[in-house]
Every structure is written in structure tokens, then in C-alpha cells.
């Protein structure tokens, strides 16, 4: 997947959104910024990201806007393969646990360290994808190997029956 990763960011705070977008673009990812969760959900009808960075509090500008946790549930319902990183200014275990319960991969607290933490978590997600891909590969190899052994055993049995293969004393 190299750096061709597609990352969507949902953030209603203009400055914060711009900073996350610039940071991820600088890492070589394709980034799309949405200032509402509703905008993201509309986009998900036609396209989907690999990773979603989702703000927990999405109603600081528009009070009627859907909250991050509701968007998280909807995104996971639509496409469970999208890994969601929630982020918020709230350094709260309860908030973090709540987001994980609904399928978020991890939780970041906004602030100066948020950007390096974001890099770390994206690295973790990519490693997890690599492990899953390797597992799939080995499982496929295993199936081939079993089929090959079965074919060889079958051929030996046929050979023995037809006299083509003579077993030693």
C-alpha cells in the first residue's frame, strides 16, 4: 500500500483540521478533509478511505451536527474495513474506552503530541494489515501444500494398484 494510503479527516475546527490535513499530506498520504460527519457519510456512498481520523466533538460549530461517536457507528456499519482513529481534546479514559467499544482502532488527545501519536497509530494499523495479509498468504500456501501432498499420495496409491510402483519387501 506504500504511501498511497487514503486518509479522510473529519474535523469541524478549521485550524485543527487544516493542521491534521497538512501533516498527513506531508507524509505522502492522499487526504480529504470534511468539516461535518454528514459530509463524510455522503462521500462514503461512493468512495471509502483506508483510514479515518474522526473528531469526537463535532458540534462545536453546528450544534445540530452529528457527534463523532454516532458517525463512528455509522461508518463501521457501512464499511467495517475502515480503520477509525478518534481524536478529541478530552483526555478521558471513559471517552477512549467508549470509542474503542464501537470499533475505533485507537484514540488520540489533541495537542502538540497528537501528530507524532497519529503517525505511530497509522504505523500500527499498517503493521496489522501486513500481518493479516501474511496470514492470508500462508493460509493459501498451506492449502496448496495440502492439495499437493494429497495429489502425490493419490498418485502413489494409483501407482501401487496399477503395478506402476512396486513397494519394497
Amino acid at each position: 500500500m506504500a504511501n498511497s494510503l487514503k486518509v479522510y479527516v473529519v474535523e469541524d475546527d478549521t485550524m485543527q483540521g487544516e493542521m491534521v490535513k497538512d501533516h498527513l499530506t506531508g507524509k505522502g498520504y492522499t487526504v480529504k478533509l470534511f468539516n461535518t460527519g454528514e459530509g463524510l457519510l455522503k462521500e462514503l456512498d461512493t468512495d471509502s478511505p483506508d483510514i479515518l481520523v474522526l473528531d469526537y466533538n463535532l458540534n462545536s460549530v453546528d450544534k445540530s451536527a452529528m457527534e463523532g461517536i454516532d458517525i463512528l457507528k455509522r461508518v463501521k456499519d457501512k464499511n467495517d474495513n475502515v480503520e477509525v482513529i478518534m481524536y478529541s481534546g478530552q483526555d478521558s479514559i471513559d471517552v477512549a474506552v467508549n470509542t474503542m467499544r464501537y470499533g475505533a482502532f485507537d484514540y488520540i488527545v489533541k495537542g502538540e503530541t497528537a501528530f507524532s501519536r497519529l503517525d505511530f497509530i497509522i504505523g500500527k494499523i499498517r503493521k496489522q494489515w501486513e500481518i493479516v495479509a501474511n496470514e492470508k498468504h500462508y493460509r493459501k500456501m498451506n492449502t496448496w501444500l495440502i492439495a499437493l501432498i494429497a495429489a502425490m499420495v493419490g498418485a502413489i496409491i494409483v501407482g501401487v494398484i496399477t503395478g506402476g510402483i512396486t513397494l519394497g519387501s
Binding site: N59, Q90, A114
Partner: peptide
Amino acid sequence: DELKVVAHSLKPQVSY
């Protein structure tokens, strides 16, 4: 509640 939201948004920006 609204005041909390505004302060919450300002918090990281003040730090940046």
C-alpha cells in the same frame, strides 16, 4: 455547555 465547547476548541490552539 456551550462555553465548555468553545474553551475545549481553544485549548489545543493555545498550546500550538
